[in-house]
Nucleic acid binder design. Structure first.
Lengths: 105, 105
DNA sequence: ATAATTGATAAATTTTTATTTATGGATTGT
DNA sequence: ACAATCCATAAATAAAAATTTATCAATTAT
């Protein structure tokens, strides 16, 4: 029997992950970045929201690990980090104590 | 190429799902329910939080579809709905446009 | 050096979500 | 019917997150 107990700190971290996905705009950002990495202006044009708002949400996503930011010249390229999303699924499975892939019901 | 565009309404629904997991207490509840279905008093004793607070969070979880509630006599049995969690993973994959299971990187 | 571009941050405000406390509704046991 | 148990809901408050507006920092181009 696997140990499925998680510390408060681990749970907090996990909730931050889910919290980062608790936003239509952030899901849109992830969707856009899933198609191609972009800088903030690209996203601004594509998603029609203000630049500071985008920066704010990008910061949230970055802190949760779902995107990475790399400075290239004067722009900052944002890139999706699928591994963080996979990890999130793995961690919720830990909380539950079973794999979501199994038990088709 | 699969259609990975989602309506605003679908995205909203998805964010509500993630929002429901954006709480340490709610993850604890899910963890408890993953072990065995329970009524509110069971959870109250196990998680050491007030009954109204539990009811509130259970309502959130129920609205997100992660738990079901069935009245049995004077108690209400709460049960985990793993399918809803699986669906959530499926939907985020839809947003991204690829499967998290594939692409180990 | 100056101007233009790109993006972050700060402050103020609004909106959403969580928590407490109090109360009421439903069901069972006597 | 009455008391006890189990749970939801409502109202008030507190806390957290999102949004806007304004400003500043870093990089590049002239």
């Amino acid at each position: 029997m696997a140990d499925n107990s998680m510390s408060d700190r681990e749970l907090r971290r996990l909730t931050r992950g889910f919290g980062a996905l608790h936003s239509v705009l952030r899901l849109r950002i992830l969707s856009a970045l899933a198609q191609n990495e972009s800088n903030v202006r690209d996203l601004e044009a594509k998603l029609r929201v203000s630049q500071p708002l985008l920066s704010w949400h990008l910061t949230q996503l970055r802190q949760a690990g779902f995107v990475s930011a790399e400075r290239v010249g004067r722009e900052v390229r944002y890139r999706l980090q699928p591994t963080a999303l996979r990890d999130l699924v793995g961690q919720i499975e830990n909380v539950l104590g079973f794999s979501l892939a199994d038990n088709p019901d």
